Simulated assay, not measured.
Amino acid sequence: MTGWHAPDDLVTRYADGSLAETDAWSLDKHLEHCGRCAARVSHAVRAGAAGPSLAAVRAGVLAAAPAPARRTAPAPTAPRALGGRLTRILWAAGPAVRGTWAGAVVLVALGAVALAHGGGWAGARPLLLALAPVVPVAGVALSYGRHSDPLHEIAASAPGGGLRLLLTRTAAVLAVSAPSLTVAGLLLPSPGPRLPAGPATAGWLLPGLALTLASLVLSGYLGCRTATAVVGSGWLLAVSAPLLLTGGTGLTAGLTERLSLYFTGAPSQGGWAAATVLCALLLAARRTAYDRLETM
Rank of each mutant, 00 (worst) to 15 (best):
R46S: 05
T2Y: 00
A202P: 08
G271W: 06
G48E: 02
W4D: 13
G51I: 12
L244G: 10
V106C: 05
A93I: 14
R98C: 09
L243H: 06
L115Q: 14
L281N: 06
A38E: 03
T295E: 07
A285C: 05
A64D: 15
A50T: 14
A274L: 15
A49K: 07
L205F: 08
G139V: 10
A171V: 12
A253F: 00
T22R: 15
W101T: 03
D291S: 14
M1S: 15
L244A: 14
P133M: 04
L115N: 13
E153P: 03
V137R: 04
V140D: 06
W91M: 05
V57Y: 14
P133V: 07
S53D: 14
L293C: 03
S233G: 14
A253H: 00
R70C: 03
D9Y: 02
S260D: 01
G51V: 12
R164P: 06
G198N: 03
L283C: 13
A39D: 15
A280H: 09
G250C: 02
Q269G: 11
T170K: 01
R292H: 15
A44G: 09
L167V: 08
A92K: 09
E257D: 10
L186I: 00
A75V: 12
A132L: 04
T256M: 00
P159W: 02
G51P: 14
A69D: 15
C279V: 07
L188Q: 08
G223M: 06
R194P: 00
A116V: 05
A81N: 07
A238H: 02
R286E: 09
G161W: 00
A15V: 08
D28F: 09
L251D: 05
L211P: 03
C34A: 12
P74C: 09
F263H: 01
L110K: 02
L167K: 01
P68W: 03
P95E: 09
A227P: 08
H117A: 07
A141N: 09
S53G: 15
A55N: 14
V173C: 11
L86R: 12
V134K: 06
T87I: 01
E153R: 08
A44T: 07
H117V: 11
A227T: 09
L245N: 12
L54C: 12
A178E: 03
S42R: 13
H147N: 06
L236W: 13
A116D: 05
G3A: 12
V97P: 12
A124C: 12
A274W: 04
T72I: 14
L31P: 09
D23S: 15
G265C: 03
A24L: 02
V239P: 00
